[in-house]
């Protein structure tokens, strides 16, 4: 698919550029083709498609989208100049940000263009059927520390008779699940499944069977549309007491190659201004994942109805 775009965009871009030269009233812009990694989760796709649509319609940019798993590949691609920018990076899930981005002590090979607006919240969740309703097996499970009362519900063979908690799926995310369990006096074993996919698959299968489970997850995320989950209460985030607390909010951001600031300053400015709230994104995710609408239609629809919001980003 990338190639079709690859082939058609230069022609279109050339035509546009020519039109730009000929029309004296057109805004002076370094419009060109921008290569952007397509996020592999719906929320990230929405955030990026909104920005792309605005840049396309108002500044004459064209886009080449590349499907690539999020994480290090995206960072490396931006650093090497293969990608121009990417949207909605979650700080928690990208420890390597500290290699590249100034704000986290990196070498400035990647710049943070601006916040994306989406605020992520992490927590441990249990299925609602476990804690509510007449058949609830753990009606008193409210806080994280309450888990101790229900060891037998969560124990497995592999965890040697201790309760099992599905921790962060990727070690590099540094969630400190086991230290948190130890610090808060819950004698459980945190297991790490190694990939997000495994994590969601296991949760979904357990949910379908109505089995008890407790798992790490975050919001906004499609898993909450698929499964009815309830968060456990954790002590509020406190850097001094970490990991005996909950998580800090994840302030997501958009990042790009440093050349964005010089070569495509107009685009970089729009990206820096753009903010999408959790609620705005959630309504679009619902339309795409639940109602099965096409992402471009949903994004166009939103842009048409919310002109006041995004017009402000242009200035």
């Amino acid at each position: 698919m990338s190639l079709l775009k690859k082939l058609t965009t230069p022609v279109a871009a050339a035509a546009l550029a020519a039109a730009g030269i000929m029309a004296p009233l057109a805004p002076a812009s370094a419009a060109g083709i921008l290569t952007v990694p397509e996020a592999d989760w719906t929320g990230g796709m929405v955030t990026c498609h909104i920005i792309q649509s605005i840049l396309k319609d108002n500044l004459g940019y064209k886009f080449k989208l590349v499907t690539i798993p999020g994480g290090p590949a995206v960072f490396e691609g931006i650093r090497s100049g293969d990608f121009d920018f990417s949207c909605e990076t979650w700080p928690s899930y990208n420890p390597i940000k500290s290699n590249y981005i100034k704000e986290w002590g990196g070498d400035e090979s990647i710049v943070k263009l601006g916040d994306a607006g989406i605020i992520g919240v992490s927590n441990y969740y249990v299925p609602r059927y476990l804690v509510e309703g007449p058949d609830a097996k753990a009606p008193d499970l409210k806080t994280f520390q309450d888990l101790s009362k229900y060891n037998d519900l969560f124990k497995t063979l592999e965890t040697g008779g201790k309760g099992r908690i599905l921790g962060c799926p990727v070690a590099a995310w540094a969630c400190d699940d086991q230290p948190r369990l130890d610090a808060l006096g819950v004698d459980f074993v945190a297991v790490e499944l190694g990939s997000e996919t495994a994590h969601w698959a296991e949760m979904q299968a357990a949910f379908k069977r109505g089995e008890p489970f407790v798992a790490y997850a975050w919001e906004p995320h499609w898993i909450h549309a698929a499964l009815d989950l309830v968060p456990l209460t954790l002590p509020a985030y406190d850097e001094a007491k970490w990991p005996a607390t909950g998580w800090a909010e994840d302030v997501t951001f958009n990042m790009g190659n440093p050349e964005m600031l010089t070569k495509h300053a107009d685009a970089a400015k729009v990206i820096a201004n753009a903010r999408l709230t959790n609620n705005q994104q959630a309504s679009m995710i619902l339309a795409i994942d639940v109602d099965g609408k096409d992402i471009d239609d949903v994004v166009d629809d939103w842009l048409a109805k919310n002109e006041a919001i995004w017009k402000a980003w242009l200035n």
Binding site: T156, E158, V191, G194, T197, A198, E202, Q204, A205
Partner: peptide
């Protein structure tokens, strides 16, 4: 994963 769960 669905049938056996995530484990070694």
């Amino acid at each position: 994963l669905m049938f056996f769960g995530g484990n070694p």
